[in-house]
Design a protein around this nucleic acid. Structure first.
Length: 497
RNA sequence: CGGGGCGUGGCGCAGUCCGGUAGCGCGCCUGGUUUGGGACCAGGAGGCCGCGGGUUCGAAUCCCGCCGCCCCGACCA
């Protein structure tokens, strides 16, 4: 019996499983350049669906899209002290503009033309604060120009030492929002609005429950006053920072002289925010929902929501079930669903099932002669379960299934997260969990950076966030779970991607 | 940058210890029979054995040098 290459089970090796799922679901492939990936059509479609939903939400909150250049003068990066510090070690530089033929054979046939050296090297953007605020300085004169609310969809490059498909690639796609406000309250409100937007997107579209909160200084964005984040817990009990929203204060405004005249006639610096989510979200989606049979895509972001597999023996049956398949496909598409009809005749139905499962398709409809006779189709859910559905009401049945799968995935992920969250940890429990099962560990924090650093060094766990009130434990911890000194806040620790 | 693996048809691997001119499974192509959970038969296509040197009558295999990739850590969306 022919068997396709199997996906490594999660329990055996989570990393291998992750890579296998991506390969089997045809989401991405390794590129010839180390650390870069090719996003294949099935993976890119997920990104497009994410983009569409997020873009609608970003517009609905008053933001406009723009596009800033890939190249940034190197000197710009130096203008904000913390910012350089944070990114200097991972930027790609353009130093020359030409190659020349050498007349040598093979790989030596071309070489950098030394006469083409740039006077000032260009940085390939690792993020766009510097170039955007340089432009803001030109565009903002008066309080009447504020707030300025922009977003861009772009690629950025960070020369990370170690990469991982979707989670940390040298080049990645993202959206980065950049705004300017007249006062601190405006910037703070904006940073919070976006954090909430990200949270809604994660939960409503990705079926990914997140906890929100503020980062400690050590995890703060380079150049920001405060960094807020949404954090999700993956199936292996490691945390994923899924999105960040920064209140930049006046740091960049001062570095790039972004000033405006106040209503009273004075001159003041603007308050900025920046925020982003990236193709990393796709990695989160994979690690959150998928199983040993491959991807499980939440219906709202599934490139294919319904796969129809006709089953036949004779030519006559083939014509019949295919005909009904086409009809069902048309009906579902009319209802706005993304549908594929699998009429390939070189594969048995079972082989097709495995394929569509690996691709993460939430609902599969099987139509065979027996179903035709009974006026029904078989509706199989990627998350488990198979039942007949009347042909007359198949659209409703599928729509219901998709909604239930979507909400079921969110509920399951939330239950798993809560099961793997421990509140009120003491040092002993903390050590046990970080060496073993992992998960979100809630406990008191003294606020000392040195304590935080020691915990990281000894356990690999970091404070993911100081959680927002909604996520805090009913009883606030009074002492630091590590050093025993008075706690200034409750923190959520985890080992993270 | 440290640690561990690995580079052999598209993919996954065997062959390497003990040199003799490349093999298996999947996939692919053609034809036929099949089709309710990964079909079968027959015929076929496809390989600078990572790269460069060396030893040898002869190198995937031995020696020297290089390069690359994946996984694990330190750094990060």
């Amino acid at each position: 019996m022919a068997q396709a290459q199997k996906i490594t089970p999660r329990a055996k090796d989570f990393s291998e499983w992750y890579g296998d799922v991506i390969a089997h679901a045809q989401l991405a492939d390794y590129s010839p350049v180390r650390g870069c990936m090719v996003i294949r059509p099935h993976g890119y479609r997920i990104w497009e669906l994410m983009q569409r939903a997020l873009d609608d939400m970003i517009r609905a909150t008053g933001h406009k899209n723009a596009y800033f250049p890939l190249f940034i003068p190197m000197s710009f990066l130096a203008k904000e002290a913390e910012h350089v510090e944070g990114f200097a070690k991972e930027v790609a530089l353009v130093t020359h503009t030409r190659l020349r033929a050498t007349g040598k054979p093979g790989a030596d046939a071309i070489a950098v033309d030394p006469t083409s050296a740039l006077d000032e090297p260009l940085v390939v953007r690792p993020t766009s604060e510097t170039i955007i605020y340089a432009m803001f300085a030109k565009w903002i004169q008066s309080y009447r120009d504020l707030p300025l609310l922009l977003n861009q969809w772009a690629n950025v490059v960070r020369w990370e030492r170690r990469t991982r498909l979707f989670l940390r690639t040298t080049e990645f796609l993202w959206q980065e929002g950049h705004t300017a406000h007249a006062d601190e309250a405006g910037a703070e409100r904006e940073a919070r609005t976006i954090l909430d937007l990200y949270r809604r997107f994660a939960e409503d579209w990705m079926a990914m429950p997140v906890i929100t909160g503020v980062k400690t200084d050590s995890e703060r964005f380079a150049g920001a006053l405060r960094t807020y984040a949404i954090e999700a817990l993956m199936q292996d009990n490691k945390a994923l920072q899924a999105g960040t929203s920064h209140n930049l204060g006046q740091n960049f405004a001062k570095a790039f002289t972004v000033q405006y005249q106040t209503a009273a006639g004075g001159l003041d610096y603007v308050w900025n925010t920046s925020w982003g989510v990236s193709t990393r979200l796709i990695g989160g989606l994979i690690m959150l929902h998928s199983d040993d049979n491959g991807l499980i895509a939440p219906p709202r972001l599934a490139p294919v929501q319904v796969a129809i597999v006709p089953i036949w023996k004779s030519d006559e049956e083939q014509g019949q079930v295919s005909g009904i398949g086409h009809q069902v496909k048309a009906d579902l598409e009319k209802a706005g669903m993304r549908v594929e009809l699998d009429v390939r005749d070189n594969l048995k139905p079972g082989a097709k099932y495995y394929e569509w499962e690996a691709l993460g398709v939430p609902v599969r409809l099987e139509i065979g002669p027996r179903d035709v006779a009974a006026g029904q189709v078989m509706l199989a859910r990627r998350t488990g379960g198979k039942a007949p559905a009347s042909l007359a009401e198949v659209t409703t049945a599928v729509a219901t299934a998709l909604e239930e799968i979507q909400s079921g995935l969110l509920a399951a992920a939330r239950a798993r997260r809560e099961q793997n969250s421990i509140r009120g940890v003491d040092k002993q429990t903390f050590l046990e969990r970080t060496q073993g099962a992992g998960g979100f560990l809630y406990g008191g924090f003294c606020g000392q950076a040195s304590c935080e650093a020691q915990i990281k060094e000894q356990t690999g766990a970091t404070i993911r966030v100081i959680p927002d009130p909604e996520f805090r434990s009913p009883q606030a911890p009074t002492t630091c779970m590590w050093c025993g000194m008075a706690a200034v806040a409750e923190a959520v620790w985890a080992q993270a991607y």
